[in-house]
């Protein structure tokens, strides 16, 4: 049984609008998957299909074997947490702990249990110190961490980060990705990161590339980033470090594609010493 399964899913935003012709992919439980695509590639529609905010025209989306339909909607949403893009448009309450409580309140969690879940969720994202702070006074990265905590309070098994770092500064971006990685490793949570930053895809076990509503590449991130020409046709870039490696290569220094600072430096050092 897959954590998340898209089977022959097609979807369109009305006549002439954006269209997903036919989509098939699966995510295993405990996996960390990145979905890459440029703006408008349809990657964000996936998150909305995965928890039933949108319904496919044809085909089925299932979560742990249960189809995402009217009947299972509630169950599915408890299993799949989604964190969206804009840190300002996801919080309903003015105070951090009240906002984190919102989801848990919705599903009728007893009061004492909500308290425990707030503790758990805020410490998972490192925001315990801000429990009583006003949401509007937090930084973008902090607001997104509160949004993640709000999702965690529902105890989901899958968390989808739908371009959740796109509006953040590098520090905020790093914080969010660290939280995602930790939840994956320590809590065994299934993580799907939808992003246009190639650097973020490097953290994942597996990367999927979307273009015009279609899944066009799939594989280990490092493997995907060796296929530069192909990526360019999908309006995607290599991570910065990959571009440097490529330039070195083209300039006549055959360094291996490492996508890692330490390894690249070793490669360069090796090349320079054997060359002299």
């Amino acid at each position: 049984m897959y954590a998340l399964e898209f089977k022959d899913v097609s979807f369109s935003y009305g006549e002439g609008g954006f269209r997903i012709p036919k989509l098939n992919f699966t995510v295993k439980e405990g996996e960390f998957v990145a979905i890459l695509g440029h703006n408008g590639s349809g990657k964000s529609t996936l998150a909305r299909l995965a928890n039933g905010i949108l319904a496919p025209d044809r085909g089925t989306v299932s979560v742990f074997g249960a189809p995402v339909d009217e009947k299972h909607l509630y169950e599915v949403r408890r299993q799949v947490g989604v964190v969206f893009q804009n840190p300002d448009n996801q919080t309903v309450a003015s105070i951090v702990e009240d906002d984190v409580a919102f989801g848990a309140e919705n599903v009728g969690t007893p009061r004492e249990e909500i308290g425990r879940r707030i503790d758990f969720a805020l410490s998972a994202v490192g925001m315990q110190a801000h429990r009583l702070s006003a949401v509007s006074r937090l930084s973008g990265g902090q607001k997104q961490r509160v949004a993640i905590a709000g999702v965690l309070a529902l105890k989901p098994r899958i968390m989808i980060l739908d371009e959740s770092t796109a509006m953040l500064d590098p520090r905020g971006r790093r914080e969010i990705m660290e939280v995602a990685k930790r939840l994956n490793q320590e809590e065994g949570m299934t993580i799907v990161v939808i992003t246009h930053f190639p650097e973020e895809a490097l953290l994942a076990d597996r990367a999927l590339v979307m273009n015009r509503g279609e899944l066009v590449m799939q594989g280990a991130p490092k493997e995907i980033f060796t296929r530069h020409e192909e990526l360019i046709t999908y309006n995607l870039e290599l991570p910065r470090i990959g571009r440097i490696e490529k330039s070195l290569h083209e300039g006549g220094m055959p360094v291996k594609s490492t996508l890692n600072i330490e390894e690249l430096v070793n490669e360069i050092a090796g090349e320079l010493t054997c060359g002299s």
Binding site: R48, G81, F84, N89, L154
Partner: peptide, 10 residues
């Protein structure tokens, strides 16, 4: 967007 986020949180 807030509507979507609220729905996503059950």
């Amino acid at each position: 967007e807030l509507g979507d986020a609220m729905e996503a949180r059950c």
